[in-house]
């Protein structure tokens, strides 16, 4: 934990310089050892990429014909059918003719739900956790450390343990199958977020804060004008990670958000999986659905790739 206040933020910037300085660096001749190392790395890259390609290939195949050419790297009996099944633009008969079930994903509805849920969780969790972290890091008040310790104990409680009673609570509140029900347990804070941000807030220079105080700024203004801007990197990191996790969450929304109107993509996808035709799984349809569900995260990644990578490394060093 000691390393926290010296964040890795500078690391990416001076990375290129380091490359040049490191013994050997890029110009080292390709000896057999290095060649082997490259081969291993490329193998890993291949293992990482291959499933995506196979997913794409299957998603464009006719499910009924898949077994005729199981090895072919190209789509078997090319068709848009699986994607049409996913988007619900194929009729039940058409779907079944290609070895699908009649089930369809109301894709746009689920996409909307995933977006709403993930955004609400991210915004709420990061903001409220930042508020709490500020209170723990920069304000002094009686009992602060004791309260913080109590908060920390929540880190030890495994999610599955609280999920069961939380389910009962959400049920009693009548919030089953509503957005608030899906969002609520993650909306106000997670112990990790509070802990993570507190560490950064502790490291912010006091001088700025004091100067603002002298200028007559209150705690609220300091929080919004000094603390938050000074912590934009950790806030972005936390935001990105929270969003990815919220987007990928399955256990909780599967319990409280089964109904179509609020169903998120992960839950919809597993329901699509259960809608198997009697003639064996609709692999092509499933892969099309998986592909379609992966596209939004892929787009986010294309847009913010570097930022995401840096974010994750950021949490690593701290």
């Amino acid at each position: 934990m000691t390393a926290v206040a010296q964040p890795a933020a500078p690391a990416p910037q001076d990375a290129p310089r380091r490359t040049r300085l490191r013994p050997g660096g890029r110009r080292r001749p390709l000896n057999p050892g290095r060649l082997l190392a490259w081969a291993v790395l490329l193998l890993f890259l291949l293992v990482t990429i291959a499933p995506f390609l196979w997913m794409l290939r299957t998603a464009l195949s006719n499910n009924r014909s898949l077994f005729t050419e199981p090895n072919s790297p190209l789509p078997v009996d090319f068709t848009w059918g699986p994607l049409q099944r996913v988007f619900g633009t194929a009729s039940t008969e058409e779907a079944q003719a290609e070895g699908g079930s009649g089930a369809s994903l109301h894709f746009w509805v689920y996409l909307r739900n995933s977006l709403i849920v993930s955004t609400l969780i991210t915004v709420g969790q990061v903001f409220f956790s930042a508020c709490a972290a500020y209170a723990f890091a920069r304000l002094s008040w009686p009992g602060r450390d004791k309260v913080f310790f109590v908060f920390l104990t929540a880190l030890m409680v495994p999610p599955v343990f609280t999920m069961l009673p939380n389910f009962v609570l959400i049920k009693e509140l009548g919030l089953l199958n509503t957005y608030p029900g899906i969002v609520a347990p993650f909306f106000f804070m997670t112990p990790f977020a509070v802990f993570f941000l507190r560490q950064f807030f502790l490291g912010i220079n006091r001088e700025l804060e004091e100067a603002a105080m002298i200028d007559g700024a209150g705690y609220y203004r300091i929080f919004f004008r000094i603390i938050l801007p000074a912590s934009s990197a950790p806030l972005a990191t936390l935001g990105i990670l929270t969003f990815i996790n919220a987007w990928n969450e399955y256990f909780w929304p599967n319990l409280v958000g089964q109904k179509d109107g609020v169903r998120v993509l992960t839950v919809a996808l597993s329901a699509f999986r259960t809608a198997t035709p009697n003639t064996g799984p609709d692999w092509a349809g499933l892969m099309a659905a998986a592909l379609v569900a992966a596209v939004p995260t892929m787009l986010v990644f294309l847009a913010f790739g570097r930022k995401i990578i840096n974010s994750i490394q950021f949490t690593g060093v701290k």
Partner: peptide
């Protein structure tokens, strides 16, 4: 705002159960 947004969503979610 956070609280209102939540409750507002609760309302729309209840009404929006059936779509299309």
């Amino acid at each position: 705002g956070g609280v209102t947004a939540l409750s507002a969503l609760a309302l729309t979610a209840c009404g929006g159960g059936a779509f299309g």
